[in-house]
């Protein structure tokens, strides 16, 4: 049973077709790398998965449940969407940490707010808060930031901020963790620490979808690669096939261009 299945997703902005019918599926524990040139639609696809954009057409299934259907308005209701988002975590290119909170509070905030909806919140408030705080500390430790927990985002380097953002996304235990070019906004010497964290997550069998320009990294970490071009899935397969033996001309051309750099 695939944990994620995407069926025929289409999306247009002002008469420009950005996604022209995307299909793929992902098994639990798989790491999908989406590559392609700028403007090929990778980021839009990721944003569709997180409901930051509404696809014009198509379906999204998680664990065989249809959580989004462009034909079915009931699946698009705001309060419904909010809960369904929790299947996905998203790490942004520009981190988007909340500047007014410490690293730890950034990780805790969403969970605290969700906890308020629990029935036993009023009676067990202290207990619950303590648990959430402990989990946040554990998560920050796991991304190597045990001694930065009480610092504010502006006191952290870009790499550290992105690691906080990863911990924040993990705090809600998403089924699928998405990365939108997680190292593009970082200085080259800081990308390593972030990629290492993602490698560790891959080892721990976290299901991930990673949009990236880091070809070597994609080849190392991914179990599956999709090459997108002009809004369609141009080539799909195991990393060794797509990178080592691309079948399509366009894939070849793209990879040559990248290795040439």
């Amino acid at each position: 049973m695939p944990v994620l299945e995407v069926r025929n997703i289409e999306k247009s902005f002002d008469n420009t077709e950005v996604l022209k019918g995307i299909n793929f599926s992902l098994e639990k524990g798989e790491v999908l790398a989406i590559i392609g040139s700028s403007g090929s639609g990778k980021t839009t696809l990721l944003r569709c998965l997180n409901f930051l954009e509404r696809p014009d057409c198509g379906q999204i299934l998680v664990n065989d449940n249809i959580i989004f259907d462009a034909q079915d308005k009931r699946t698009q209701h705001e309060s419904e969407v909010r809960k369904k988002r929790l299947h996905f975590g998203l790490v942004f290119q520009s981190f988007n940490l909340f500047p007014q909170y410490t690293a730890k509070k950034n990780v805790m905030l969403a969970k605290e707010l969700l906890a308020k909806e629990r029935e036993d919140y009023k009676t067990n408030r202290r207990q619950i808060k303590k648990e959430i705080e402990k989990e946040a500390e554990e998560l920050l430790k796991s991304v190597g930031l045990q001694d930065k927990m009480d610092l504010y985002p502006h006191q952290l380097s870009g790499g550290q901020q992105q690691r906080v953002a990863i911990a924040r996304a993990l705090a809600l235990n998403p089924d699928i963790l998405c990365f939108d070019e997680p190292t593009s906004a970082l200085d080259p010497e800081l990308t390593g620490e972030v990629l290492n964290v993602i490698r560790l997550l891959a080892k721990a069998n976290t299901t991930m979808v990673i949009v990236t320009h880091e070809m070597q990294f994609a080849r190392d970490v991914a179990t599956k690669v999709i090459f997108m071009d002009e809004g369609v899935v141009c080539e799909e397969g195991a990393p060794c096939d797509v990178f080592g033996n691309p079948k399509k001309e366009r894939t070849k051309h793209f990879l040559e261009h990248y290795s040439g750099n």
């Binding site: 930051l52 809960k83 998203l90 942004f92 988007n96 909340f98």
Partner: peptide
């Protein structure tokens, strides 16, 4: 968007 993907109202 960060708030939205974290399931906030």
């Amino acid at each position: 968007e960060a708030g939205q993907v974290l399931g906030m109202k």
